[in-house]
């Protein structure tokens, strides 16, 4: 699965994207796995209320299932316009 990071989430984790081998069934499960990796992940995912997630390029909730999903992205609330 491709996992992408944007804005300060990207800066905190240190890479814009990576390939992740996972058996996570939901976004929440994936977050638990990533947090356990290293301190920089724990720091980025410390407060989920400050984060948004997109699953296959569509905004989703953290309880969204990951069956058949190819791409998950984590980022702060968007500031377009």
């Amino acid at each position: 699965m491709n996992v992408l990071y944007f804005a300060w989430v990207r800066e905190r984790i240190g890479v814009p994207r990576e390939q992740v081998e996972t058996t996570a069934r939901t976004v929440n499960d994936l977050v638990v796995e990533l947090r356990a990796r290293e301190e920089r992940y724990a720091a980025a995912f410390e407060d989920l209320s400050a984060l948004r997630v997109a699953v296959d390029q569509t905004l989703a909730e953290f309880d969204a299932p990951l069956d058949g999903v190819r791409e998950v992205a984590f980022f702060p609330p968007m500031t377009g316009g």
């Binding site: 944007f6 804005a7 905004l59 980022f75 702060p76 609330p77 968007m78 500031t79 377009g80 316009g81």
Partner: peptide, 9 residues
């Protein structure tokens, strides 16, 4: 656009 388009400033 302000809060649902994936841009970050």
């Amino acid at each position: 656009l302000k809060s649902r388009a994936p841009f970050w400033k």
